[in-house]
Write a protein that binds this DNA or RNA. Structure first.
Lengths: 155, 155
DNA sequence: ATTGAAATTTGGTCGCC
DNA sequence: GGCGACCAAATTTCAAT
């Protein structure tokens, strides 16, 4: 993971369909060198996949909610995590410190579906209660952090 | 947005680098038809981009926190949103209902950097306080919802 | 809209530096 | 590690339907 690798990762985070020729121009190497580096980054697990980013409204999941999952007194985390994993409306699932064992991001078509999903989340064994925060608007999301220039050690 | 478009979007959400030839095989059309459809989905704003998914630890952002931003009595939302946008460590920003005006996802290298970023967030004019939840582990994240088969009207 | 065919570009492998 | 060359495969354009 030298500077070139970091620049390649940053470029692919910004445009996951960039061609090796484009990446080569961006980092000043040949396409075959870039190909070898990117392959290594993929096999090393640094790059875990590529995804199209989609307008949620267009694909029928225009309503987003952030839901805290509070477990009961002696609730185990693992079966709760498995139940959340089995709920397709749960897009992301974080195990967290604090009152909630988990915070999940739920995406659904409308408020009615949100209500149904929240009912299912509450019905998960070991879940004592849920705390739901409805998203009014997504200001921005999943933004790639720009590649930071190497720290200048000072003059 | 017919059934074929939805299948293309689902396929590209699962693999953003899928070739047109692969997509064509998946939906049973020619590569050129798929190309035209995907181009239209892009220009229509249904597909907004393509991103490489990266292991956060490998790129030096192994610590994630979910931070609620509570505004003051007469704090305006727009300048707060602009300040959050100008903070590169803020990966996602949601305007929400409830006590917090915003919930943001922060990604940083370590707890020390988290502390610094939280200080900067609290220093944003109009922000009364922040509520931070540290992520202990990411169970899953940004999972594409599988394409749902068309609703059977029943027999 | 979809297609097949044509022209261009890219992906992926190899030997060499 | 990086490079240029190579060939198979893909992207992209286009006229016809």
């Amino acid at each position: 993971m030298d500077r070139t690798d970091r620049r390649l990762v940053a470029a692919l985070r910004a445009d996951g369909r960039a061609s090796y020729a484009e990446l080569a121009r961006a980092v000043g190497l040949s396409a075959s060198s870039v190909h070898e580096r990117v392959t290594k980054l993929e096999t090393a697990g640094v790059i875990t996949g590529y995804r199209a980013v989609v307008d949620p409204v267009s694909v029928g999941i225009g309503v987003t909610a952030i839901v805290g999952i509070e477990p009961g007194e002696n609730g185990q985390d693992d079966p709760i995590a498995a139940a959340l994993d089995a709920t397709p409306e749960v897009e992301s699932c974080y195990q967290v410190a604090g009152d909630n064992a988990f915070v999940v991001v739920v995406r659904v078509a409308d408020i009615e579906e949100l209500s149904q999903v929240l009912g299912r989340l509450r019905a998960i064994p070991g879940v004592a209660r849920t705390r739901t925060t409805v998203v009014l608007s997504t200001v921005f999301e999943g933004r790639p952090r720009p590649d930071r220039p190497p720290t200048d050690g000072g003059s």
